[in-house]
Each structure stands twice: as structure tokens, then as C-alpha cells.
Amino acid sequence: MEDLLRIDDRLNPDQRLIRDTVTSFVTDRILPDVADWFERGTFPARELAPALGELGLLGMHLEGYGCAGTDATSYGVACRELEAGDSGLRSFVSVQGSLAMFPIWKYGSAEQKEEWLPRMASGEAIGCFGLTEPDHGSDPSNMRTFAKRDGSDWILNGAKMWITNGSIADVAVVWAQTDDGIRGFVVPTDTPGFSAPEIHKKLSLRASVTSSLYFDDVRLPSTAVLPEVSGLKGPLSCLSEARFGILWGVVGAARACLESAVDYSKTRVQFGKPIGAFQLTQEKLAWMYVGTAQASLTAFHLGALKDAGNLNPRQVSFGKLANVRAALDIARQARSILGGNGITLEYPVIRHMNNLESVLTYEGTQEIHTLVLGEALTGLSAYR
């Protein structure tokens, strides 16, 4: 489909290479099978992780330890092309790099970095991020998971929920209350007392591993603590990293739905002509393209701000809120153009539409991001 606004002309040669490389990977390795993965509720993470690592996509925006050290826009472009394949694929890469590797890279000890980051960058080791709890999603400050001192060790108890990669992870970055405030812990998943049952019966993000985490007197050495951060600043900074990938990624999902709708409208004949020749269909397609292009421009602008070191969390909230809503609206419109075929997995639309319902909620619900912007505009907090 033609890029009418020539938005990708903004990409430099390295960024174009990343775009094309990821697009080829998705076309060759993901698209032939992802509908089956979605239908079966499976995701071959162990098979894909080394390939993603070989391409330099795991922790790609981090420096050193085998990470590619790309700029933020390159990371965004990669997320866009990954999510054009499936949100579950982008979620895997996002959780690995922005939620599991980033806190170790940013706040970890030298020993933690050396132990985990090279293996995670290569895809040998998989990570997950434990913040959300069964009773505390949007309000992590009141989390119940608690770590208490026992001599030089820590004893961790509690539960986390809706954890991507949890059941397949080798290491979990877990946030817990302590007597000194919220702290992060690097928890090898083979530690006694740790368990991570997979969550089933999902109708969204089915090509993704989603789990609960349980900690039953998990004993950790003092070296398990992330030494360079305390309080909510730690997990919230990780979420900002991940949300940046999301606001780029959903542009790929929207584009995939738009392309599918355009192609279908040119071949589906009703009343003697392709449905794309009807004014109602063209109006839908035009607004879908406008929404996709506007979301793309937002992503590029925020990428430029991040590369310049000027991106703040409120701007990330704007991007996450605006772009996910736009992508979901585009997916729903595409579904209507495809009619009955729009609910089958022969086409990518219903898969993207269902996935985006989860993306709307995770990494901050649309309501929370709305209130972040409301506070930015008025100076008045509505949720504290």
C-alpha cells in the first residue's frame, strides 16, 4: 500500500535496514503460522528467542552486554514491524528488552548485569516483569507482595498477575514492598517457592504466554536487590520504556488491518463492482488511513524527542492513549469492511482487533493515561 504522506522518508539508512530486516523476519517466520498459534493459544518463544537475539532485537536500545545500542526511533520501527505480525510477538520483545533487561541495565549491580544481560540479549535466557497484582493493577503503590529481611537474606511472599513470559522465563524482575519502600528483585525462576502457572482461556493475545507469579517464602540473597533504585520510580521508568514501544507497535497493527481492508475492498465484488468502488467503503478507508498516518507521525515525533533526551512520561501517555485508541478504531472499521470474513483467522483483522483490546488495558489503562493528561493540563490530580 502506498505511503501517501511518505512518512518513512524520515528514516535514515540504518533505520530502513532495521525496518526491512524485521519485515522480512515477520513475513518469513511469523505470518505463515501466527494464525495457528493464535487459534491454539501457543507461542514458540524458545524457538524464536535465539532468532530475535541474532537479529539484535532483544534489548536493542541498550548499550553494551551484547545489546545493539540503537537509537530510540530504530527500536520504535522494529516494534512497528513486529506488531504488524502480531501484538504477542512485539510484547515478547518489549517485555524482554524494556521490562526485564532495562531495569537490570539501568539499576542493577555489575554482577547482575554480567550474569543476565548477555544471555538475555542473545535469547538464551528469557525474562519477565512482575508488577501487576490480582488486586492492584492501576494502583501499584498499594501492592501486597512483600520482601522482609532475614539476616542477610530476603524472604519474598505474594503474587503477580497478567505477566507476559512468566511461565517460560528464566529470570523475573519483581517489585515488592519492603520496610524501606518498594524495591526491585532479580529472581531466578528456579528458586524454591517460585511458581508461574500459565493463564488460559484468553480471547486476546493468544499467541503470547501470560502467567501468574506466586512467591511462597522465596529466599533470596542480598545480591538479588536492584541496588540503584527504590520507590515507584523504578517500575514506572520501565513502563515508560515499554509504552514507547507500544505506541510504535500499534501503528503496525493498524497498518496491517488497513492493508487487509484495502486489498479486500478491491477484490470483493457486490452489486456488480468491487466494494472499494462504493463511497461508504472509500470513506471508511480514507479515515482509516488518516488515523494510521496521524498515529505514525505521533510515533516519529516522540521518537525524535526520546533520541534528543527530551521525552517525558506525560508525552508517552499521550502516545499510548492516542495511538492505541486509533489502532483499535481502525481494526474495527477493517472488520466491518471484511464483513463475515472479518471474523475468521484467514485474515489478520480479528486477531489484531482482539489483541488491541489487551493493549488498550496493559501498561496503563486508557483511563489512567487520560487522567495523566488531565493532571498535566489542569495541575489537579484526579486519582490521588
Rank of each mutant, 00 (worst) to 15 (best):
E375Q: 15
N355D: 15
F194W: 10
S122K: 09
A35K: 09
K148Q: 14
A376F: 10
G41Y: 01
S74F: 05
T298G: 03
L338P: 02
V26Y: 00
A35D: 08
P192T: 04
R19P: 05
L328F: 12
P192D: 09
V290G: 01
L302S: 07
C128I: 01
P50A: 01
A100V: 06
G56N: 03
F185Y: 06
G137A: 15
L236P: 00
I168P: 04
P50T: 03
S94D: 14
G340W: 05
S265D: 04
D20F: 11
N312L: 09
N312R: 13
V173A: 07
L131S: 08
L321M: 10
T378F: 03
F92R: 03
A322C: 08
W116L: 10
L311K: 06
A196F: 08
S358M: 14
T361A: 15
H61A: 14
G249N: 09
A261T: 07
C128F: 07
L280D: 13
L258R: 09
P221Y: 09
C238V: 05
E346R: 15
Q366F: 11
F278S: 06
D150I: 07
A277K: 10
G59Y: 03
N323G: 02
L305H: 07
Q177V: 07
V173Y: 03
G130D: 11
N12W: 12
L5W: 09
T210S: 06
D190G: 05
L285C: 05
D139L: 13
N12L: 09
W154M: 06
L31W: 05
G130K: 08
P313L: 04
N142W: 12
Q333C: 08
I163K: 04
I18F: 04
G272H: 09
L17T: 13
A224D: 04
L377E: 13
G137K: 10
I275Q: 04
R144P: 00
E241D: 11
F271T: 01
W287G: 01
S358Q: 13
H136N: 13
L131F: 02
G272I: 11
G137P: 01
V218Q: 02
S98A: 15
Q15W: 02
N355P: 09
S296E: 15
A382N: 10
V26N: 06
G85L: 01
E47T: 14
A331S: 14
A147Q: 03
T267S: 12
L205R: 01
T42L: 01
G181L: 11
T42N: 04
L62Q: 03
A331H: 02
T27V: 10
Q315E: 15
F25Y: 15
T365N: 11
W105E: 06
G291N: 15
K148Y: 09
G303F: 00
G158R: 02
V174H: 10
S204H: 13
